[in-house]
Amino acid sequence: MSGHYYSVTIAVKGRELEFPKKSVDYVIVYLSNNRFEMKISSNIGCLASLKVLDLSNNNLIGQVPFVLGNLSEFESLDLSWNQLTGEIPRSLADLTFLGFLNLSQNHLVGPIPSGTQFSTFFTSFEVNPELCSLLLPKKCEHPLEPQTEVDGDGDGDDENGFT
């Protein structure tokens, strides 16, 4: 079926996402409401056709992989209701096609990166008491410094259930 196009409407979290004239290489990963207790592998950044990723309502740990920002046509990301820690990768703020983002109900810290449409995701960062921004009750004490992003968590072990 390669090279053929189709259109589809998908309901995600009560919101309908329309995808007109999409080719069959469009990938949606919806693994919400499972009991995953692992880190998100940086290998997920190799899925060039990934458009929608929903890993909400699990027990995922570790940091949000900065390689998600390499998915230039990424449209929807939901990592809410997990146990994720660390800062929000600056690379996510550079995604121009990102139309839905939810990182709420985690343990994220630091400033929310600015750029593209991040300022329109008003409720995407709720219940992360250590996040700071002009949009949140907690204001940042220091100006945003550039993040040094490393591959994964530095332990060199990307082997987990997502590889």
Rank of each mutant, 00 (worst) to 15 (best):
Q117C: 08
E130P: 00
K51S: 12
E149V: 03
H4E: 10
S2D: 08
T116Q: 15
N34P: 07
S76G: 04
W81V: 08
L103W: 04
K21R: 13
S91H: 02
S56F: 04
T96E: 13
E75A: 02
L136F: 11
G86H: 01
S7F: 00
F162M: 15
G69S: 06
F125H: 13
V8F: 08
F121N: 14
F118T: 11
V24N: 12
H107E: 11
L53I: 08
E126N: 15
L98M: 08
D54Q: 04
L134W: 07
K13A: 07
A11C: 02
M1G: 10
D25C: 01
Y6A: 13
E87T: 05
H4R: 10
L79G: 03
L134I: 08
G86S: 02
K51P: 01
L77S: 03
S104R: 07
E18G: 00
S2M: 08
E149T: 03
I44P: 04
V109D: 14
I88M: 08
G115R: 07
L71D: 09
L17P: 00
F125I: 14
L79R: 03
G3K: 04
Y6H: 09
K21V: 10
N70C: 03
L50F: 04
D153T: 06
L84I: 03
F66Y: 14
L31D: 05
Y5V: 10
N106V: 06
D158S: 13
S2G: 03
P65M: 02
K13M: 02
S119L: 12
A93C: 07
T96L: 04
L55M: 15
G99P: 01
V64P: 03
N70F: 02
